[in-house]
Nucleic acid binder design. Sequence first.
DNA 1: TATGAATGAGTGTTCATTCAT
DNA 2: TATGAATGAACACTCATTCAT
Lengths: 228, 228, 228, 228
Amino acid sequence: MTKKPIKPAVPAAASDMDRGASAGAAPASNRATRAAERRAAIVDAALEEFIARGFAATRLDDIAKRAGVAKGTIYLHFKDKESMFEELVRTVIVPVVARLAALPPPAGSVRDLVEAFANNFLKEVVGTRRGDLVRLIVAEGPRFPSVADFYYREVVSRGIAAMRGLIELGIARGEIRQKDLARYPQILVAPAMIAVMWQSLFSRHAPLDAQDMLRVHLDLIFGERRTT
Amino acid sequence: MTKKPIKPAVPAAASDMDRGASAGAAPASNRATRAAERRAAIVDAALEEFIARGFAATRLDDIAKRAGVAKGTIYLHFKDKESMFEELVRTVIVPVVARLAALPPPAGSVRDLVEAFANNFLKEVVGTRRGDLVRLIVAEGPRFPSVADFYYREVVSRGIAAMRGLIELGIARGEIRQKDLARYPQILVAPAMIAVMWQSLFSRHAPLDAQDMLRVHLDLIFGERRTT
Amino acid sequence: MTKKPIKPAVPAAASDMDRGASAGAAPASNRATRAAERRAAIVDAALEEFIARGFAATRLDDIAKRAGVAKGTIYLHFKDKESMFEELVRTVIVPVVARLAALPPPAGSVRDLVEAFANNFLKEVVGTRRGDLVRLIVAEGPRFPSVADFYYREVVSRGIAAMRGLIELGIARGEIRQKDLARYPQILVAPAMIAVMWQSLFSRHAPLDAQDMLRVHLDLIFGERRTT
Amino acid sequence: MTKKPIKPAVPAAASDMDRGASAGAAPASNRATRAAERRAAIVDAALEEFIARGFAATRLDDIAKRAGVAKGTIYLHFKDKESMFEELVRTVIVPVVARLAALPPPAGSVRDLVEAFANNFLKEVVGTRRGDLVRLIVAEGPRFPSVADFYYREVVSRGIAAMRGLIELGIARGEIRQKDLARYPQILVAPAMIAVMWQSLFSRHAPLDAQDMLRVHLDLIFGERRTT
DNA sequence: TATGAATGAGTGTTCATTCAT
DNA sequence: TATGAATGAACACTCATTCAT
């Protein structure tokens, strides 16, 4: 029995950001696979270009060139430039959210949980292309309400809810003193967001040790760690 | 003796953002005054458009229309679109910085100082056009290194330094326990920045009581206030 | 066996100036052919417009309209207006030079040679669009050194050399008495050039019988012909 | 008795080309003088710019700057750019023609006359701004029929007539053998015209000894000079 | 009379989108 | 399905001309 290569439903479509090392072109058996690969290539290229230049200043020509397809091909996958941008954000964000939603085992203290979460964020977002995507959304959000909406719905509101849950847990367990914090989970993540922006904008003026900063921030919330 | 109205040499040139209620434009006496007024009108209009659409998507035609001048007039004041954007940021930011630099009377506790500062920020930046300008800089910074540089130099680095000074004072006076905070003044202002972004992007999904959030954040840093 | 119509790889690309009666455009089979035809149409139209108005006053819009293409199409073939002008001159001149370089059979006297040459020039240049092109180069040369350079290299220096050769031959054969003439072949062609200019500028004031004038000039150089 | 400064009817208006060393601003007594000086300055500047860039590419701004007047001032002297160009040519050419019309004493042989004339032309036209003006007229003539007409009427037809007169005199005196030459005085001046163009266009590729060339040409017409 | 700020029509160039191959 | 040549609307920028001072 020939074992057919198992292809994901949305194959490789989520850009390099979510591909391990799938760079080396896969065998590309049938039609659908090829199409999906092309789409993924376009998404990757578009993300790169949009991040580098913003929506309006990005040329479809450049995206096509970078993706290694003809300009017309883009229109086989996306209705127009705007749709492409909107779908792009969805395509890239969905798997990230999915992974984060698969919470790590809630073992240990709340601080440990939050810290694990923060470290993950540091590694996977701050200073990476994903961090740039966040900045891109901040930049283009007002011109793309649907993107802002999507981002709020899928990422922000969920993230806020998750953080609130952790904060309430921390309060219940006595790890967090300040009860009001549960009303503003934003405070918990604010320095992380600042770190994201800082890396994009100011890191060449004054590098920021994001990890250390987040530790200090957590100390503020959970109390300084006893260095036993 | 007739008291002649004293007109500033470069009057109101810094955009509405810094004009009190100069709406009812004066008769506009001399040439230089007129020129300055026009320039101010262009700056105002450009700011509005750039915030609404971003740099690349803004049309000089629209700026001219909004400013009530002909397209060519813009080029009497600015070399080209890019220079306009760069000078615009400077023009708008400088007086804000100048005002903030005029420190409020350092009376009372450090918390009071910080709180006064935060309230000022809330009133003057969060949810205002100035807040949008911050977002605009975040959005366009990577494409306009000179703007990012300027903003870092004039606003960020100074703000960080000022915050650090306050934090160290708070530590010295025993108001702030966590000494490490002085290494990351960003933590102090992070929620304020988040508030700025939030208002631009998500306020229609979930309004944010920025003032209350900042209070909670300060409680975190200074300890909860005794409600006497 | 069906004899397929042989099409040149770059067909008719050199403007009407070098097309015989290709007016009834062929069905235009393949892609490359179509492209070449379009390019030729643009070159023709541009030549016409540049001659009529000069470089600066010529509108790309008009060229496009005359060529029957969209304005953007021009930019598929030429980098910008300046390059178009420069390439245009090359494109048009090269085949003319090529044809002249294919020397007529060097039979008969030097005078006959020169006369054949002059008659050819009269028919093909004086009073034609090619003549206007010469005037155009004289007009725009100072603003387009590269054009002047090219023209000097490809046309002038070669023409001068060829004339010098003929003159020396004429001297050797005793047909030309004045030996110094070999130092200034320009004298040989000067009346022809004057004829070119005259047709463009003054023919409506005073028509010039260029052929007769050239005959008189040759009489001057070779001595009057015995009217046998 | 106050000695009023004698002003020329067309004061200084003919550009540097016809001013000796009037550069050092004259006392400029009354209104009319000042106006005439300004006009002359504009004419000078305009000539310079038109020669350097051609009609269409010349900016009134540059002319004004070079002339040391405001842009609006130009419109006090000329209806618009086209009129300025047309009047400019007239203004500059008239005195040149006037001077040439004041024929040198017709002493000596015809060849001496022609040679004196040619030397004058070499010194005053070839390689000078006046020569450039000739090229400018050749360049812009087709777009400015009135200029071409004027030039033909005032310069070309008169020059042709004068040359014809000299040729006929030469024939009558036996200095010139070829009687047909009288029908094409253009032949007499053709090398001189070529020299004018050559200096503008090709002198940097191959310098041309115009004087020697003209001598050879005259030898051709009058027979080689006996070097006694 | 002279100025030069202001105007706005005009033009070169770009680029999202279409469509014949 | 994929291509990329062709399109033409859109836009930044220029510059001749006007006019209030």
